[in-house]
Design a protein around this nucleic acid. Structure first.
Lengths: 158, 158
DNA sequence: GTCATATGATTGACGTGTCAATCATGGGAG
DNA sequence: CTCCCATGATTGACACGTCAATCATATGAC
């Protein structure tokens, strides 16, 4: 028997699942983001930067290390740090030992903002995401996400 | 026996699942988006607009109907239509019957761009998303997404 | 008919993200 | 030592999204 030719295009049903998935993730991102904004005046991007810095030695990181830690492109980080510096959440200084580098440090204001945002943010994640599922369902999410992530990594490599 | 006090903050493990979920969805969105851009010069936003218009009667919609169909805020749509009009993918005209309104019509160039983008885009969705899963897994995704979506809708209402 | 308000749509300001170009310094080959 | 190139970081141009303000037309109350 001839092997069935591989279906090239998704079925209507598969497409619906795709759209639901991507739209729901988007709604989720936006809900969590506006909660964070309302609770503390920080964006999710701000939060990621502040979290990484607040866990760092001396609350300071090389710009490139920070980018690596939070998985951002250099230029994105550079733009965002500019905006955060204007708001005095962080400050940048020359890097001892490598004059090309920049050191990014958490400011007092930044540390305070992060501290006061953290608990409400985590609570929002629980309410909005975690509470939607039973423990078994959350485990399923985990498995499926991992499966997808591995597929994507494989896909992105070529 | 006293009822267990409800856990306020997510556990480390729950937080990891959350982060994996949201980051993976983001990677996915970005991969599909750049494939579409590379294949056809359209963004995902362009694609949504062109899809709705190409399915509409006379390839034309009221601006407000279009916004409703694709679930966008009016102002977002207005800005985006401005950009698409500059690229001549669509054109806008006064609306017969209600002088406040605007009619948005697919241009020839827009129709052509959409046609040539469609198959590669659907193929990308299959390769990047659908192919990651077995049919059973895809059904699980569907169930979990629906569960989450209902939770979010409930949550957003108050 | 006139006025208040609702509706359809656009605009401006601003935060955000990407890409390509740029700039300065570091560091090895010769 | 000099030259070349790799590396760290920034910049500018532009696409995109949100919010609040605005503008014109429609419509119902009177």
């Amino acid at each position: 028997m001839a092997q069935a030719r591989r279906r090239v295009l998704p079925t209507r049903e598969q497409l619906r699942v795709w759209r639901d998935y991507i739209e729901t993730a988007e709604v989720l991102r936006s809900l969590i983001g506006s909660r964070l904004q309302a609770d503390s005046g920080l964006s999710s991007a701000d939060y990621a930067v502040l979290l990484a810095l607040s866990e760092a030695d001396g609350r300071t990181l090389r710009s490139s290390e920070l980018a690596e830690l939070i998985g951002w492109e250099r230029s994105r980080l550079s733009h965002h740090l500019g905006r955060m510096e204007k708001r005095e959440l962080i400050h940048r200084s020359a890097c001892a030992g490598d004059s090309r580098g920049a050191e990014v440090a958490l400011s007092e204001a930044g540390a305070t903002a992060f501290r006061s945002s953290s608990v409400p943010h985590l609570r929002a994640i629980r309410e909005i995401f975690i509470d939607a599922f039973s423990p078994e369902q959350l485990a399923q999410i985990d498995t499926l996400t991992t499966t997808l992530r591995e597929h994507l990594d494989r896909d992105a490599r070529d």
